[in-house]
Amino acid sequence: MKDVAFGQYYPADSFVHRLDPRLKILFLIAYIVAIFVASNFYGLALCAAVLILAVALSRLPVGKVFRAVRGALILVIFTAVINLLFHSGKTVYWSCGILCISKEGILFSAYLVIRLVLLVICSSLLTYTTTPVALTDGIESLLTPLKWIRFPVHALALIMSIALRMIPTLMEETERIKNAQKARGANFESGNPLRRVKAFIPILVPLLLSAFRRADELGDAMEARCYGGKKRVKYKKLRFSWRDLLAAILAAALIAGVVLLRVYLGEIV
C-alpha cells in the first residue's frame, strides 16, 4: 500500500513511459477525438493499429491491458446489448415489439464496442505509463494558460502534489485505526446497513482529526520554508524531446487518417 502504484502505474522503462506527460494527455484527447471522428471500420482499424503500436512500445504485459478492459466489461456489454436490441435497421433478422435485431444494429453495436474498448485501453495506457506525480505536473503545465484569467494554477498544483504525497500516509493511518478499533471489539462486517455506517464513526472521527492535525503541522512546515511569498518558481520544467515530436506527428497523422477515411469512404451505417 505504500507504493506509488496506488494509482495504476506500472513501472517500466519504455518509449511511452518516457514521453512528456503533457503530450500523453494531449495524445489521449486527440485519440478520443479520432475514434469519434472515425465513421467506418477502416477508420477504427487505423485507430486500433495505432493503439496496438503504442501498447507494444509501452512494454506493458498484455494481461495488464486486458485487465483494464475487464474493469469496464459491464459497461461494454450493457452498451452492446442495448444498441443491439434497440437499433432499427433495414435487414431485420428478429423482432419482438420494439425490440429487434438487424444487420445495422449488429454493425452499430460492434462499432460502439470497439470504440469503447479502444477508449478504455488508451486511457489506461496513460495511467499505466505515467506516475501520478508526472500526471499532476502535466496537468499543471497544461493549465498554465489559465493564469491569464487569474486562475491559481500553482496553488492547484500544490494541492494535487500534497494530496498525492498524503494518500499513502492516510491509507496506512486508516488501516492502523481500523485495527485498533477492531482490537477493542468493533465490528465492521456484520449488522444492517445503518449499523455498519455507524460502525465506521470510530474510524472516521480519528481519521478526520488526524487529517486536520496533519494539515495544521504541514502548514507550519510550509510557512517555515518561506511559503506564501509573492514570487514562486518551479524547479522542474517538463521538456519536449524527439520522442514527443514523434508521438505528436503520430497523433496528427492519426487524425488526418481518420478524417480522410471518413471523407472518402463515408459512414458505415
Binding site: 518561506c226 511559503y227 511569498g229 514570487k231
Partner: peptide, 30 residues
C-alpha cells in the same frame, strides 16, 4: 525549523521535489 512528525513536513512525493520547495518559494534561479 524542522518539526516533530516525519510524515507532516513533506509537500511532494519525490525526495528532490520536496527539497526544492523552499528554494522555489523564494524564487531562486533554476
Amino acid at each position: 525549523v524542522v518539526f516533530q512528525n516525519p510524515d507532516n513536513q513533506t509537500v511532494a512525493s519525490i525526495v528532490e521535489d520536496d527539497v526544492a520547495f523552499g528554494a522555489e518559494n523564494v524564487a531562486l534561479p533554476r
